[in-house]
Amino acid sequence: TGEEYIAVGDFTAQQVGDLTFKKGEILLAIEKKPDGWWIAKDAKGNEGLVPRTYLEPYS
């Protein structure tokens, strides 16, 4: 299990392996990579890379 984050903006996948999401979606951070791209999972179970700058902790 990971930590929940809320998307603060829309993001469209730029390449294969990225995860597209919309502002307000809750994402589960699976792995926090030091380069600023995290592996996350959305509510539908889709998994991919997301930019850290689009996420804020969800409580």
Rank of each mutant, 00 (worst) to 15 (best):
E25N: 07
P51D: 12
E56Q: 10
Q14K: 12
T1N: 12
G45C: 06
G45I: 00
K32F: 07
D42M: 01
D10Y: 04
P34V: 11
G2Q: 12
N46T: 08
K32Y: 07
Q14A: 11
Q14M: 12
K32G: 04
Q14W: 09
L55N: 01
E31G: 08
E56W: 08
I39L: 14
Y58R: 08
A13K: 05
K33V: 06
K44S: 12
I6S: 04
A7D: 00
D35P: 01
V50I: 05
V50S: 01
G24V: 00
A43M: 14
Y58H: 10
K33M: 10
E25Q: 11
A40I: 07
G24I: 00
G45D: 05
F11Y: 14
Y58C: 10
G36H: 05
G36P: 03
G17H: 06
T12P: 05
S59F: 14
I6H: 03
F11N: 02
G9W: 15
G45F: 03
Y54V: 09
G17M: 05
A7K: 00
A7G: 04
A43H: 10
F11C: 06
Q15I: 09
P57W: 07
K41S: 07
K23H: 06
D10N: 10
Y5W: 11
G2T: 12
L19I: 05
P57T: 06
W38R: 00
L49P: 04
V16C: 12
T53M: 13
V16Q: 12
A7Y: 02
D18W: 15
Y58Q: 07
S59Q: 14
L49K: 13
L28F: 11
D10K: 02
P57A: 09
T12K: 10
G9R: 15
K44W: 15
I26H: 06
G36S: 04
V50G: 02
A29K: 03
A7N: 01
T20S: 15
T20W: 03
G17A: 05
E25D: 15
D35S: 08
D18P: 02
E3T: 10
A13M: 06
D10S: 09
Y5L: 04
P34F: 10
W37A: 05
K44P: 03
E3Q: 13
A29E: 02
E31D: 12
P51Q: 09
T1F: 14
G48W: 03
G2L: 14
G24T: 02
A43W: 09
L19E: 01
F11Q: 02
G17V: 04
P51W: 08
P57S: 07
W37D: 04
P51F: 10
E3W: 11
I6N: 02
G36W: 03
Y54N: 07
F21G: 02
Y58P: 05
E3K: 09
Y58N: 07
Y58T: 09
Y58S: 08
V50F: 01
Y5F: 11
K44D: 11
T1P: 13
R52E: 14
K44H: 13
A29N: 02
Y58L: 13
T12I: 12
G9L: 15
G2K: 12
G24D: 06
V16F: 11
K41M: 13
K33Y: 11
I30N: 02
E4S: 13
K32T: 06
D10C: 07
G36R: 02
A43T: 12
L19R: 00
A7V: 04
V8E: 03
G9M: 15
G48E: 01
K32E: 07
W38A: 01
G9F: 15
L28Y: 12
A29Q: 03
F11R: 07
V50N: 01
L49Q: 09
P57N: 06
E4P: 13
S59M: 12
P51K: 09
T12A: 09
V16D: 13
Y5N: 01
L19K: 01
Y54K: 12
T1K: 13
S59N: 14
L28K: 09
K33T: 09
A40T: 04
G36D: 07
L19D: 02
I39P: 02
L27K: 01
A13I: 03
E3D: 12
L49F: 14
F11D: 00
T12R: 09
K23P: 03
K33W: 09
W38T: 01
V50P: 02
I26E: 01
Y58M: 11
E3V: 11
P51G: 05
A13T: 04
P51R: 07
I6R: 09
G36I: 04
G36N: 06
T1E: 13
L55S: 00
Q14P: 05
V50H: 01
L19P: 01
L49G: 07
I6Q: 06
R52G: 15
A43C: 12
K23N: 05
I6C: 07
S59A: 13
D42A: 03
L55G: 00
W38P: 01
Y5M: 06
I26W: 06
K23I: 08
N46L: 08
A29G: 04
D42S: 05
R52M: 15
V16A: 13
A40E: 01
D18T: 11
Y54D: 05
I39C: 09
T20H: 06
T53P: 07
